[in-house]
Design a binder for these strands. Structure first.
Lengths: 264, 264
DNA sequence: ATGGAGGGTTGACCCAGGGTCAAGGTCAAG
DNA sequence: CTTGACCTTGACCCTGGGTCAACCCTCCAT
């Protein structure tokens, strides 16, 4: 006959686990000796091995109880179902590994390789690292919002960067981080942006970015709060009849309505 | 700016989870509006997406914190390690699936196919179902104790069953379950057993069964308590100078010492 | 101004599957 | 007789939140 620790050793579980199984009624309480110690026989060993076999397969203890006390067919059905769950778990695991690999390759976290390449291109152009971080965070949000469309969006951004005016715009915005909000060069940025937007309007690009308005508002307010210069720039644009930043639109009062471009 | 439920909706987590992250310090508490509501910016969204990306990979939240606050290399190392763990998890999962398959094919639980075949063979010989259940439980224990050697042991058992004397022995033992402990036929069982053991001794089989003594004792005490007949049989054998059941030995006082056979 | 719906806030308890500690009884050996 | 190893029960702790309760805040319609 066995003490609890011997039983535990035989079956490869902890003493605590055995007592836990007693408490939840999974393993019957055995007889006690005159000093109150539990004394186990082979039946307990067998039951415990069965319990562990199922529990190691990830079956919750409550279900283990049901299975062990069930008949042959019910048991077989249960095992089939458990195996199906294990297969699903294996699929999930493969999936996770893929995501994790992409994550390790990305710009610190959770970005597709294309986006990382785009950020590197900005970096290569001499854009300020602080601005690149803002861009990166924005892309993380976009990736979270519309993961399926991000490839198309980033491809469009790459094309935009082929335009020298766009490059100049990025460099100016990046430099502007340290300007005073009164700096007259801010107007120059607004000039370039207006020209870029007019051109985008003509070409008909960016008709639908797939982002919802609340999301766009959030990005805009983040931009607005990033620096006094940004605030000033947006104010100038608003005076000229534009509205927004992430998704720029002609303000309703202006002549040509609904024109949209973007600075995601 | 976002309320907590908007933040949760953006990042695909529950409101409760967000608050949980605040409590464990994984996500910084944001500013509150004048009525005490939490107000979030894009920074929280980004942080939360990063958290979920790692957490979905099975990283414990405590470790997520460490990773997110770490530098590039440390982060990359961490991800590598996590991937290693995921691979190990996948291995474990395959292993479990194998065990589960064997379990479903086995005699209700956790027995290799060979053992099931052996039990079926006993059944075919007309051995009492109660005895077969005892055998099955014993095999479950053996499978738990020496899983790597069970194939060899069961093969030996199959060979033993080719001996008509062994078959007779099994049938008698099976019948004996209902006898009175005074039944004279019990001596007949002892006779057969003695002969079998002498033969096993000569052939030199079963020199080392790989079971430890405590385990053998447990099996013996189970046998002893199974019925008064078993008790009587063991007493007779003891009178004749044998000891044990699972691993039968010549008692020290007897002429030829150390002979061992078995009735696993 | 008032009532109700639908947000938000905190706090407390609950789950698996035990780990860990505490306070005390028991047992075998020296 | 003491010591150390074992046993007993009970209580609190962990992760990653779910669920419920009680109450506050805001907004909208009346």
């Amino acid at each position: 006959m066995l003490t609890i620790s011997q039983l535990a050793a035989y079956t490869g579980v902890t003493v605590r686990a055995v007592r836990h199984y007693h408490r939840i009624g999974l393993l019957a309480e055995p007889a006690r000796d005159r000093s109150g110690y539990r004394i186990y026989g082979a039946d307990a060993v067998v039951r415990l091995i069965r319990i562990r076999t199922l529990a190691d397969a990830g079956v919750p203890l409550a279900r283990v109880q049901g299975l062990l006390d069930a008949g042959e067919e019910e048991f077989r059905d249960g095992v089939r179902e458990i195996d199906k769950e294990l297969r699903a778990e294996a699929r999930r695991l493969r999936n996770t590994r893929t995501r994790l690999a992409r994550l390790a390759a990305g710009d610190h976290l959770a970005l597709p390789q294309d986006v990382v390449a785009y950020l590197d291109r900005l970096r290569g152009l001499g854009v300020d690292e602080r601005y690149i971080e803002m861009e990166r965070d924005a892309w993380i949000m976009i990736a979270g919002q519309v993961p399926d469309r991000i490839d198309a969006v980033i491809a469009e951004k790459h094309r935009e960067l082929d335009d020298p005016a766009m490059v100049e715009f990025y460099l100016l915005v990046s430099e502007a981080l340290d300007w005073s909000p009164d700096d007259p060069r801010i107007a120059r940025i607004a000039d370039i942006l207006e020209e870029l937007m007019m051109r985008a309007l003509e070409s008909g690009a960016l008709q639908d970015d797939g982002l919802d308005q609340a999301f766009v508002d959030l990005m805009d307010s983040t931009m607005l709060e990033s620096s006094p210069v940004a605030e000033r720039l947006l104010a100038i644009l608003e005076e000229r009849g534009w509205r927004g930043w992430t998704r720029v639109e002609r303000a309703p009062s202006a002549k040509s309505g609904g024109a949209r471009s973007g600075n995601g």
